[in-house]
Amino acid sequence: MSIADRVITIIANQAMLELGDITLESTLEGLGVDSLGLVESIFAIEEAFDISVPFNANVPSAGDFDISTVGAIVAGVQRLVAQQS
């Protein structure tokens, strides 16, 4: 499975949606993922890819990890995975 598909699966689980309901343009808010769900999704992503995502729930927009859309999250994860290898 590609990184994008794995991230989408994690978010779909969190949002309790079908994979087909989620596109790269979706926002977490639009999918009904609240702040606690976001923290849980980031944790699941870190566990799945064995990476450390710089994310502070107080200032979600700060840092260089963009969470504005599913596509942005996928890009961020791809970058972190590439940096790691």
Partner: peptide, 11 residues
């Protein structure tokens, strides 16, 4: 502290 880190609300 590790448990609190998990919530991502610490400065």
């Amino acid at each position: 502290v590790k448990a609190w880190e998990g919530l991502r609300v610490m400065s």
